[in-house]
Design a protein around this nucleic acid. Sequence first.
DNA 1: AATTCATGATGCCATTTTGTTATCAATTAT
DNA 2: ATAATTGATAACAAAATGGCATCATGAATT
Lengths: 298, 298
Amino acid sequence: MNFGLRHIRYFIAVAEELHFSRAAEKLGIAQPALSKAILVLENELSVRLFHRSNRHVQITEAGQTFLDGCRNAMNLIEQSAENTQRAHSGQIGTLRIGYTDNAMAGSLPQILKAFQDVQPGLVLKPHHDVSNIQLKKLDEGELEIGFVTGPINRSGLNQCLVQSEKFVCVVYKDHPLANRKTVRLEELAKQNFVHGSSKDWEHFHSYLLPLCRRAGFVPKVIQEAFNTAGILGLVSCGMGITVLTESISKSGGTGLTVIPIQDMSEELQTMAIWKSDTMDGTKKRFVDFLQQGNDLPV
Amino acid sequence: MNFGLRHIRYFIAVAEELHFSRAAEKLGIAQPALSKAILVLENELSVRLFHRSNRHVQITEAGQTFLDGCRNAMNLIEQSAENTQRAHSGQIGTLRIGYTDNAMAGSLPQILKAFQDVQPGLVLKPHHDVSNIQLKKLDEGELEIGFVTGPINRSGLNQCLVQSEKFVCVVYKDHPLANRKTVRLEELAKQNFVHGSSKDWEHFHSYLLPLCRRAGFVPKVIQEAFNTAGILGLVSCGMGITVLTESISKSGGTGLTVIPIQDMSEELQTMAIWKSDTMDGTKKRFVDFLQQGNDLPV
DNA sequence: AATTCATGATGCCATTTTGTTATCAATTAT
DNA sequence: ATAATTGATAACAAAATGGCATCATGAATT
């Protein structure tokens, strides 16, 4: 098997014309070159592909078999080269996108929808993961884009602000604070907190806890849940209160009261984040779409 | 699209190893040659296929797309080359075989069955045609093998005797001759004959008529039919008599009597026949199988 | 029968492609 | 800081491909 695409192209031409001189002309080469190329191919396969008399050329049965295969292969390769170029320019492809509860409760759905409208050739595969896991998956190439709680300070990653939300206090509707218009953070010092589990929510906590510490207390956590729905469920049945962000706290359903936190200027930022090397076409398209001007390289 | 199978092979190797030096070693070439080949491929496609840092090589998304296509194409080509060789050696393929009523009523079914048993990879496609048409189709490459009434005297065709049968007289069961043990050919001079239509049966007649002429008469044809079944049908309902061969006259069913013809040494020969150029593998196998020693080249 | 014609094969040389060795440049590990 | 790893580059060698002139053969023409 030591022939090339060139031989295959020539073979197809001869099979189509059944005439060496004409096929050679069509290929833009001289007839002897074509004769030689076909001979090489025949030797390589140890198969006679054409019956040639000096009057007529006809394809052998084996030649016909080979022709079918060659036609398919050539189409496949051409098609594939085209797809490759489209994948390169980002017209087709797959984008694995990580998201947090915060991102999905906020502006991510609209972003994905809008992007799909502009780039219908791309398949988006969203994966729900907390920020830490997303960072790991980005590193290991299991995600192209993450939507995480930020900002992140890590080299090799670029990011872009997607949303910024105030923290709010969520209590069950019979709670003493339930009818307050606002609370101050330090008022929560003696409350029982429901939190996300330490391991998975470490990232979120790393933004919230310093603020509590600044307000002079460490939250008294009496219960942990694995996700937002779990936290809000525990809150609504009276286990305690929690602090989340505006948009996500809306998803809790009845039995809950959301109270703005007074004098708290810090917001929880959700960032799109991606590896700055390996900028493939699809990723580039998505990032360009996101940025529309407001890049924040690390 | 000006790259070759070589580039594709190299690309697959690099994609598998994700390491130029190792891939080169595996391919049995030096690393710079491989680097250059991949660069050529990338330029040709205008697509970066690998992200290379000095420490790691990873495939791009576009590269992955191309890899899939290349793998398929390579498999296809390798598979196809193999099939081509098998087709050449006659292990696989198709054989279009023409046959006359005589051949099919005689030994052809056993021949085809026996050949299929020995060469299960070959597809046999039998076509019912009178000898003339078969010869034309052989010429035009629409048949590989014909089973015709012979012998044939034509250059470029080889043949091989398959069966040789006595002529017999077929009459309806109430016919005056019906209870005779044998007849002589000249006794049929005054009988009404049912024949095959002149055009299609010309070939059969060209063997039978000279024998009648030698016996001193020209058959009085009162009815023509298109095929053997038609002839025997007309005979059985009393339209006349006919002369056919032993085996085929057995297929006529009731109402008919078959009478050997006395003192008639000539027999109707059925020959396998094929073009002597264009000896493809499948045809060669079939011919070798048929001959088992007794070739009759023209 | 002799001649011409059509057509694929062959020999020889030029050009292009492919490959090798030595070396560089950049990055990581020690 | 130094050594090691690894892909890219340069210069040259080998192999492949292509072109031109010519040959060989069988068919068509005279």
